[in-house]
């Protein structure tokens, strides 16, 4: 008898939490069959943080897929298909620099990476302008940022489908420790 009101009181926040989780979960798993992300190149993106005088506001263009697990796994697939992996390997680099570390030559923001892919860079990054549709570039941006742990944990895929090329665990969720530091054992990861 005494328990019922208590249970009723507790039910409301539980419902709210549940609804919130459901919304987050839906966003994570959202698949878009008609893509309508920003199709234009992010403008006014600065590659340098050094500006004469006071820092002006930079217009940030958020990645529409930042927390989408679907976009990230699509990005991973495209990363292989467009031969990004041929130079950057599975994030560790080769002909091109590594992408899983915390060093960003041309900026780590989504719009910086978008522009790097579109424009190319003078030390060897080819320009893919006109070669990759804009939605796919945003998916690539999502995956590239996930390699160094810059995307929300909820959007990252649990494991890769291929050979186990990261030491310890097959999961890519731990790929967020700073460059060249030794990874702790897999059990220490959440």
């Amino acid at each position: 008898m005494m328990l019922r009101p208590l249970a009723c009181r507790a039910r409301t926040p539980l419902l709210l939490v549940g609804a919130a989780l459901a919304v987050v979960g839906c966003r994570r798993e959202e698949r878009r069959f008609r893509e309508s992300p920003p199709a234009t190149t992010p403008s006014a993106v600065r590659v340098s943080a050094l500006q004469p005088g006071t820092m002006a506001d930079t217009s940030h263009m958020p990645n529409p897929y930042e927390s989408s697990a679907y976009a990230q796994s699509e990005g991973q697939r495209l990363f292989g298909w467009y031969n990004c992996a041929g130079c950057h390997a599975n994030g560790g680099g080769g002909m091109g620099p590594p992408l899983m570390d915390d060093e960003w030559i041309y900026g780590s923001s989504p719009e910086n990476i978008y522009n790097t892919i579109i424009q190319g860079r003078p030390n060897g990054m080819p320009s893919f302008a006109g070669k990759i549709p804009s939605p796919q570039i945003w998916q690539l941006v999502t995956y590239v940022r996930s390699l160094s742990g810059l995307t929300p944990m909820s959007g990252r895929s649990a494991r890769t489908e291929h050979m186990n090329f990261y030491q310890g665990a097959q999961s890519m969720q731990g790929a967020q420790t700073p460059k060249n530091s030794f990874r702790p054992p897999a059990s220490e990861f959440p």
């Binding site: 994030g91 560790g92 680099g93 060093e103 090329f165 030491q167 990874r183």
Partner: peptide, 27 residues
């Protein structure tokens, strides 16, 4: 020696076409 010359990340064993896996200690 690409792992040193190119500052590659030793956590990815497939880096530098798989050579990094064998040369993790070179840095």
């Amino acid at each position: 020696g690409a792992i040193v010359a190119g500052n590659l990340d030793p956590r990815d064993s497939t880096a530098a076409l798989g050579m990094v896996a064998a040369m993790k200690d070179l840095p």
